[in-house]
Each structure stands twice: as C-alpha cells, then as structure tokens.
Amino acid sequence: MTKIEPLGAVRERVLAALRQEIIAGRLRPGDRLVERELAERFGVSRVPVREAIRALVAEGFVHFESARRTVVRRLTRADVRELFELREALEVYAAGLAASRATEEGLAELRHLLDKAAAATEAGDAETITDVNTRLHDGILAMAGNSLLISVMEPVDGRLRWLTRQNEEWPQLLAEHRQLYDAIASGDPDRARAHALRHVQANYRSTVRHLFGDTEEPG
C-alpha cells in the first residue's frame, strides 16, 4: 500500500528544493516560477507548489511581477545593505558571546568545518563552500548560547545564505573564517567581536563588488 505524503510535508519538500536552487544559483534572478511546470517536475499537485511559492515571496526570494508572473528577485543595493546591517548587529554580538562560552566540543566542530571549507575551496566547489560556511556561522550562533538570538536570525537565514553565495572570493573568505575561529578560541570577547566586524565588512565589500561591479563602505 502506497503511503500518501501529507500536503504540508509536500509543501515543505518543494519549498526546500526551490529555496536551495535559488541559493545555489540554479534558479537565477529574473527566472520565472510557473506552477504547472514545477508541479510536473516535482510530481505533485499545484496546491503545494502554490503554497511554496507564497512562502518564498514571504522569505524575500521571489516576487510577483504581475498576477500571473512570479520571478526570482534581483538583489538590490538596499537589500544587500539591510542584510549586512543585520549581520553586523547580530553576528558581531554572537561572536563575543561565543568567545566567552566556547566549549572544546564546539571548537572541535568549528575546526572540522574549517577543514571541510578548505577542501571545498581547493576544489572550487561553490555549493559546498556555501553550505559549510553557513554551518560554521550556525555553529558560532549555537556556541553563543542565546536561543532568542537564534530565533531572530532564523527568518532571514535563507537570504543570508543566498547573500553568502554571491561572494566568490573563497580563499579570502576561508582566511577570514580561520581568523574568526582563532579569536573565538582565544576566549577574548573583544577580540572576537573585532574580527567578526572586520569579516562582515569585508564580506559586504566583496558582495557589492560581485553584484554591482563597484565597492561601497558598509554603514
């Protein structure tokens, strides 16, 4: 007897797949999302596809150009600036907390992720780099030990991953993450916050350069 997948589970599966395709760049800004085509591709009805698209609109990945046309959003300068302002406020704070609350187990996990990031950087594997770097920042948030901070970051986590994917200066990104790890491992909150701030600001400049062909100072 074939088990019927609940509608909510189908919606979440389609949503997760489409979100990852956007983050990875397989669905690019301006690409159209057509309910009928997506339903056929995923082998589902149009209802969970429609709900997944609405969720992507709410998350800021796609928008309705018209009543019948839904496309992947193009990141604007305002989008990038606002997301990085949020990163600067929250990730710098999280780094300071992580430095004061770090455990050997947590630090070992960060070292493991840095090793994976180094291997992916050497291989030029963009999707793995994005995934591992996201897990690295998630690990720092977890080490900060503040559940409210995690809940505040959660609604924009996908867009932050999408933004991270725009920065293709991978060796520099790896070097910054290693420096950030060293600062957190030192147990010095001021040092950790200073490195986190430099990292966010450098990432901002790299992202603006990649998306718009020029540089702009954050803040």
Rank of each mutant, 00 (worst) to 15 (best):
T2F: 14
K3W: 02
E5P: 04
E5G: 12
G8T: 03
A16M: 06
I22S: 00
A24Y: 12
R32D: 02
F42Y: 14
F42N: 00
G43I: 13
V44Q: 07
P48N: 00
V49K: 00
V49C: 01
E51V: 13
A52Y: 07
A58Y: 01
E59M: 01
F64L: 03
R69G: 03
V72R: 08
R77V: 05
V80T: 09
L86K: 00
L86W: 14
E88Q: 08
E91S: 01
A94Y: 04
A95H: 04
A95R: 07
L97D: 01
E105W: 11
A108I: 07
E109W: 14
L110C: 08
L110Q: 11
L114C: 05
D115A: 14
K116Y: 09
A119W: 08
A119K: 10
T121D: 00
E122F: 13
N133E: 06
D138M: 10
A142L: 09
A142S: 09
G158Q: 06
R161C: 15
T164I: 14
N167Q: 06
A175H: 10
E176Q: 12
H177L: 12
D182F: 07
A183L: 08
P189S: 08
P189G: 07
P189H: 10
A194L: 11
R198I: 12
A202L: 12
V208T: 14
R209P: 05
H210D: 05
H210A: 13
H210W: 03
F212G: 08
F212P: 04
G213R: 02
P218T: 11
G219I: 13
G219R: 10
